[in-house]
Design a protein around this nucleic acid. Structure first.
Length: 843
RNA sequence: GCGGGCGUGGCGGAAUUGGUAGACGCGCUGGUUUUAGGUACCAGUAUCUUACGAUGUGGGGGUUCGAGUCCCUUCGCCCGCACCA
């Protein structure tokens, strides 16, 4: 019964590219800023141009694409742009390893990856494409940076970097492995440099409060940001030290002050520095702290170490002399860089006190009776009542906090204080491949911003990467310039900006890209905020917080009117794959899926047939070789099967395990749909009420699924409806249902859909068509299936008219043979009836 | 270490406010069509049990007429930790 206009099989090899060209020719996905339609800005996190599109990108962009195409079908003017996060370290690493220029390497990668994206058929507005390494883009970024400087949001201060003494280079955290430089293997040192900072802490309160309005962000992301910002109410007070100095400390647990058994300062705290002067042992200890990791994770997992300064601090209430230690777990940039340590009620202090034999007094207990209860090998950080604490005894934790703060304030030795965990954003990078920081150092005038008409300050092309270190510093001419203030000899800043700055406003530039300024305020007002932002959960904190901050900062200085850039956020999972490996000579060798023949339970090498071990399903990575190349898959199965796979089965926020069998199944479904569309019978008449109902219910449900980004559910519903249509006899209802499936599948399998749309003789492109209408009357079923339980266990089901009253349901349930057999004459004590759902009989 | 998340058949997963656990797909088993087939179609597929039935959502405990869903506890895996993007 196959329609003659349909070939036996859908051939993506000839169809995909043809339709991609048709979309380009019709310019269907170009966003019109002057449109009067409701707007939808759909954005996926733009990729770093590493060279190849990764299957994870394909998943991310397919989700956004389905939403963008769907919104267009619902009559929205859609902005769905794409660009390149093109600055960063990998380009410099490639330059060092392969002798290529970072710019050329990046441009080649972009060209490759763009071609790859085109082959997947994404509905992108390529007119708005840019790369952050375009001088035009980073020139505007330099202008914005100067604006923020003029608004007092940019400053310089000393801060610590990882220094590789052999390569004479600053290392990123990921380049430090076990405290050693990844290339040189040299012991990494901490070194202080003058660096540029953005005052994100000025916005801490705003960024925290703003989270409350981001209702369409995942709760987990909001919670992570809240914890990261880390507002805490505590007490800052000063200890009188035995050397006559005062030592300010900050604590969030002033209630436990009677449990303080020592005081600790960070290695770079002035008290530590003072102790080290003329004290070799203290100096050695501070040196020890300077080695090793800089990251919070390393600091906190490292063994707690300390050095007794010999100084003591006088307890403000008991007058006791507490020893002052230099400790490796105290951070200089949180609070005052010094703490009162309460080992009984803080785990880090507990470990330290145990190691150094310091007292561990209990000052909080479950009840006053437990005042002498020993600790069970760890600190107790929870709630309770105060004990062994003088005037605080018997109070709860909150009351005691307030009491201590007011007494300290009365003494005049301190005050209640709000402290934030959030630190200012250090944006200096001692690297070439980034946005040059637009400032000029003049001996006479100091650090002055470059004149705006000198922007962009572009990177020099003639650089070499044979010598380690920043090529901008050793370039013969680049940094030499004139001071814009006095006209005298001066030098350019050679630091470049963190690439997180580039990604903090690219979504604005997509919406509006005038040549003479970063963006047009009115156009931003039209397009922003982004309706739906989609990206990886790994960006939950840094990128998303920086972008929120940068947007607020621009609003603060009056350049834009939007404060939150992303109205709705979705974080998708990774694409994973099992690993294949063989142990040869004690070494594990990994093989790529392409090298392996995968049977039901086992796998063997294609070349040679030796068995390989099938490993866990993990994130795709080059080192484990468990990667699949989107290009190869598309060449084999076409773009639509790959897109369908990306949407099927796994909920989008969870990991998606790639499997060969899975893509085969998708390929078969593409063909099954193709046959279904061929079964559209011109002129078929007659009504099929059940099918019509199923079809309209599916259209309604798939629409809500797509809007909720629950693509796996939408896919399951399309399978179901397809099955129902295949079983039905030809009718007008059936034709209508086939047409609905075609339209519903079109955002997911656009090439197949265009081909079928054309074959059915529908005019124009399906990409320009409207979403099918839903007949509300068909959404409600008139019969429901009721579960009948006895003592909470299912005994029978009943099919009854919808809305049947409770007493009738109860009577029907009790009349059931199966139920009576289960009750077996016992006394019915209670019957619970949930209309249209269930009856539960309790005996 | 701290913060956040996840855990349901052989596999991916589905399951309004607590209300028929396993929809849908993959795989597997049997059959039909085909010269053949890696295609298509039909039937079956949580576990135990001959059956009646019992058990079952990482483990243990609790609340409830009723728990995958709520509470406590425990184990495993994943993400982030400020210079990877």
């Amino acid at each position: 019964m196959t329609d003659s206009r349909f070939e036996a099989r859908f051939d993506p090899g000839q169809a995909d590219e043809r339709w991609q060209r048709a979309w380009d020719d019709a310019r269907c996905f170009e966003a019109d800023s002057n449109s009067t339609k409701p707007k939808s800005y759909v954005l996926e996190m733009f990729p770093y141009p590493s060279g190849r599109i990764h299957i994870g990108h394909v998943r991310n962009y397919t989700m956004g694409d389905v939403l963008a195409r769907y919104k267009k079908m619902r009559g929205h003017e859609v902005l769905h742009p794409m660009g390149w996060d093109a600055f960063g370290m990998p380009a410099e690493n490639a330059a060092m390893e392969k002798g290529v220029h970072p710019g050329g390497w990046t441009r080649d990668n972009i060209a490759n990856m763009k071609a790859q994206l085109k082959r997947i058929g994404f509905a992108l507005d390529w007119n708005r494409e840019f790369a952050t390494c375009d001088p035009e883009y980073y020139g505007h970024e330099q202008a914005l940076f100067i604006d923020l400087f003029n608004a007092g949001l940019v400053y310089r201060k000393e801060s610590t970097v990882n220094w590789d003494p052999v390569d004479n280079t600053v290392l990123a955290n990921e380049q430090v492995i076990d405290g050693k430089g990844w290339r040189s293997g040299a012991e990494v040192e901490k070194r202080k440099l003058n660096q540029w900072f953005l005052k994100i802490t000025d916005f801490a309160e705003e960024l925290l409060d703003g989270l409350g309005d981001l209702e369409n962000w995942p709760d987990k992301v909001r919670l992570m940001q809240e914890n990261w910002i880390g507002k805490s109410q505590g007490l800052e007070f000063s200890f009188d030290l035995s050397n006559g100095e005062k030592l300010p400390v900050y604590t969030t647990r002033p209630d436990t002050i009677f449990g303080a058994s020592f005081v600790a300062v960070a290695a770079d705290h002035p008290v530590a520095q003072g102790t080290a002067a003329g004290n070799g042992d203290a100096q050695a200890f501070i040196e020890l702290c300077k080695r090793g990791g800089t990251t919070a994770a390393e600091l906190e997992t490292a063994e707690k170490l300390g050095y007794d300064t010999g100084i003591t601090a006088k307890h403000p209430f008991t007058g006791a002399d507490l020893p002052v230690y230099i400790a490796n777990f105290v951070l200089m940039d949180y609070g005052t860089g010094a703490i009162m340590a309460v080992p009984g009620h803080d785990q880090r202090d507990f470990e330290f006190a145990t190691k150094y034999g310091l007292p561990i007094p209990r000052v909080v207990a479950a009840s006053a009776d437990d005042a002498a209860k020993p600790f069970a090998g760890e600190a107790e950080a929870g709630e309770g009542v105060l004990v062994n604490s003088g005037f605080l005894d018997g109070m709860d934790v909150d009351t005691a906090k307030r009491e201590v703060i007011s007494r300290i304030e009365a003494q005049g030795s301190g005050a209640g204080k709000t402290v934030w965990r959030l630190r200012d954003w250090g944006v200096s990078r001692q690297r070439y491949w980034g946005t040059p920081i637009p400032f000029i150092h003049c001996d006479k005038c100091g650090v002055v911003p470059a004149p705006k008409d000198s922007l962009p300050i572009t990177l020099p092309e003639d650089v070499d990467f044979k010598t380690p270190g920043n090529p901008l510093v050793r370039h013969p001419t680049w940094k030499h310039t004139k001071c814009p203030e006095c006209g005298g000899k001066a030098e350019r800043e050679t630091d470049t900006l963190d690439t997180f700055v580039d990604s903090s406003w690219y979504f604005l530039r997509f919406a509006s890209q005038p040549g003479d300024k970063p963006f047009d305020r009115d156009e931003i007002a039209k397009w922003l905020p982004v309706e739906q932002y989609i990206g990886g959960i790994e960006h939950a904190i840094l990128h998303l917080l920086y972008a929120r901050f940068w947007t607020r900062a621009l609003a603060h200085i009056g350049l834009i009117d939007v404060k939150e850039p992303f109205a709705s956020l979705f974080t998708q999972g990774m694409v994973t794959h099992e690993t294949y490996s063989r142990k040869t000579g004690g070494r594990e060798v990994f093989y790529s899926p392409a090298e392996v023949d995968r049977g039901g339970e086992s796998a063997v090498l294609k070349d040679g047939g030796e068995p390989v071990e099938i490993g866990r399903v993990i994130k795709m990575s080059k080192s484990k070789k468990n990667v699949v190349d989107p290009d190869e898959i598309i060449a084999r199965y076409g773009a639509d099967a790959v897109r369908w796979f990306m949407l099927s089965d796994s909920p989008p926020e969870r990991d998606l395990p790639w499997s060969e069998a899975g893509i085969e199944g998708c390929w078969r479904f593409v063909q099954r749909l193709w046959r279904l569309f061929g079964q559209y019978e011109e002129g078929a008449t007659g009504e099929d009420k059940a099918l019509a109902r199923k079809s309209h219910q599916t259209v309604d449900a798939v629409a809500s699924d797509i809007e909720a980004l629950s693509f796996n559910k939408a896919v399951a519903r399309l399978y179901e409806l397809t099955g129902a249509i295949e079983k039905a006899q030809p009718s007008a209802s059936r034709n209508d249902a086939i047409r609905s499936v075609l339209l519903m599948a079109s955002p997911m399998m656009p090439h197949l859909a265009e081909e079928a749309w054309q074959s059915l003789g529908s005019g124009g492109l399906i990409s320009e068509a409207a979403w099918p209408e839903v007949d509300e009357a068909l959404l409600v079923d008139d019969e429901v299936t009721i579960a009948v339980q006895h003592k909470g266990k299912l005994r029978d089901t009943l099919t009854v008219a919808k809305g049947l009253p409770k007493d009738e349901l109860e009577a029907l349930a009790l009349a059931s043979d199966k139920v009576q057999r289960s009750i077996d004459g016992a006394e019915v004590r209670k019957v619970i009836v949930v209309p249209d759902r269930l009856v539960n009989i309790v005996t």
